[in-house]
Design a protein around this nucleic acid. Structure first.
Lengths: 334, 334
DNA sequence: TTGACAATCCAAAACGTTTTCGGTAATTTA
DNA sequence: TAAATTACCGAAAACGTTTTGGATTGTCAA
């Protein structure tokens, strides 16, 4: 049905070889024949088949964007969508296609994620929304397929990552709180198994340490990065240590939940307890009071992940671990 | 590099024809040969090339997910991510791949959106985040490529759509406000050019009409669906008609912005002015007060769009316009 | 015994490109 | 004028599958 290179060759009275060369900018085709071929091609609405091209060239220019469990990760759209945008913008500007992959897809089809990718001859994968203890993670790390993870600090021959410098980010948030004079500072962390969680905890403790304050285990509680989680975590925290004067949350969403609880029990923010979040997600700007937070360059993470992957593919650079600096965004909650 | 059908044929001592048939479940291959072939294939880690398959079958099982301007649409992630999830979940469970397409991509490469799709032999497209007056829209509507739009009520031989029943949705929100006794109700609409805007305006007016209230143009103002827009729109609205007792916003984000302004000028919600939004986006649950809103089934919109497209492709059904009902979610802002 | 009929298998063409290796004609050089 | 070079073009193989149209057995009924 679609018009092929043979059609335009016939119409232009040349061989398919010449058409191919004219299209790919070779210099051994006469200027008038080239013009004629291009004109004929335009008239016929010829579009070279990417799949035929992929077959003979043995490269698809197609890279996968793996979102662990798409449906289950819907709550994380505040983070994931921006990363996606960065990945796609960069990749497509470099001439690559990006196809969506989800672990659920693979499970339904009863093929492993890596089988899915090799069947489609994907040249690489960018992985996000996955936890370190996800059973798929091992597959990703051990695969020969070049990949780069977002917030997944796993390094191997074919696997790099980009993430925020979470220990310094957390330190930044804490230093701000400490500078305001707070001494009893609660910390609501995310999943214990999330890579970012261990780093943010480190940053929290380091900041306390260099301020000469001993870390109190009662002040630390784990949750799930989401609003409801932040709410119950805050309740727990306040019941354990009622005299805290500030809380540092490992995500803006949890901070929102926390503030909701604090409002409910009549605590004023920031007078009674100061709050800082993590992520710099749009919701934080709209909350009352507007949320002080540690910003994460989500879009850039996507861009850099794309760059690293392409570096591996085109200039076979070694994969590495790229850390993006965080920045403190001070608003009304502190 | 990757192992081909020829490799497994050789290793199993049969022809490639037989391997192909064994893999595709034909019945004219002996039970023992089949077992041997499958075993050998597993040992060699053979994965049939999707691209070779696409070439000979003349179908790629690949459909495009077009997001108008990915980067510019980042603010709409609250809506788009869920739709994406629905589209991808359904499409992948039906054996289709989905590749991301953006109008920016096409522009960079200097090929039209439709050229991009035919080069890759995409079998159909789902379009979202696009405005009716987008220059690309004409291309979409006129193309021979099967497509279905999200919130883009354009119907043609190859183009269907799915969207929320916005006029009834808006009526629902308004009836709630009217039942609460409000008579002077402001309406903050989205872009005038957005398809959903004209429907929601209709619903607003219809509701007033059947309540016997005359529509006052001063009570209607257009904005951009986003928080800041809602804020300035509310200021404008209040300056024009200070005695209004309720405001209906065409998006939750604008409602959030509106509430922010109302708080700033000392109006209590809902005592002084009641607020209802549209979308039922997560932020609305977290705001103070929690936002009454008209829900939109975002994930389902994606699912239904996928179903409609596949119906066109596999059972060549006529494209149609599918309207999803809205539901009122009553919370504390009314 | 012989044809018919299953049951298995295979060779080759096709899908739409790119690329290698030449080939022909025109132009330059000796 | 002959040889060498240049400019332009084409035939054919290759990429990894599927499918068509037989071919080769063995089995069974007549």
């Amino acid at each position: 049905m679609p018009v092929t290179i043979r059609d335009v060759a016939k119409a232009a009275g040349v061989s398919i070889t010449t058409v191919s060369r004219a299209f790919n900018g070779y210099d051994d085709v006469g200027p008038d024949t080239r013009k004629r071929i291009l004109k004929v091609a335009k008239e016929l609405n010829y579009r070279p088949s990417h799949v035929a091209r992929s077959l003979v060239l043995q490269q698809t220019q197609n890279i996968g964007l793996l979102i662990s469990d798409f449906n289950a990760n819907r709550g994380a759209h505040h983070f994931l969508f921006d990363v996606m945008a960065g990945v796609h913008d960069r990749l497509s500007s470099l001439g690559y296609d990006v196809t969506l992959v989800s672990t659920t897809t693979a499970r339904q089809r009863l093929v492993s994620y890596i089988d899915f990718c090799t069947e489609r001859r994907l040249e690489g994968v960018i992985v996000m929304g996955m936890r370190l203890d996800d059973p798929y993670m091992q597959e990703v790390a051990e695969a020969k397929l070049p990949s780069v993870g977002i917030d997944l600090p796993i390094l191997s021959r074919y696997c790099g990552y980009v993430m925020t410098d979470n220990v310094n980010g957390a330190k930044l948030g804490m230093q701000h709180l400490l500078a305001k004079g707070h001494r009893r500072i609660g910390f609501v962390n995310g999943y214990q198994k999330a890579a970012v969680s261990v780093d943010r905890l480190r940053g929290y403790q380091l900041a306390l340490e260099s301020a000469g304050i001993e870390s109190d285990p009662d002040l630390i509680v784990h949750s799930n990065f989401l609003v409801e989680g932040g709410e119950v975590a805050t309740e727990l925290l306040l019941s354990r240590v009622p005299d805290l004067s500030a809380i540092f949350y490992a995500s803006d969403l949890m901070a929102i939940g926390g503030m909701r609880y604090l409002h409910r029990v009549g605590k004023r923010i920031p007078e009674d307890v100061a709050v800082v979040g993590y992520d710099n997600v749009d919701v934080g700007e709209w909350s009352a009071p507007a949320l002080t937070t540690v910003s994460q360059r989500r879009y850039d993470m996507g861009v850099y992940a794309a760059d690293m992957l392409i570096g591996m593919l085109q200039r076979n650079e070694e994969p590495g671990g790229r850390l993006l600096p965080s920045e403190l965004v001070i608003r009304q909650s502190t």
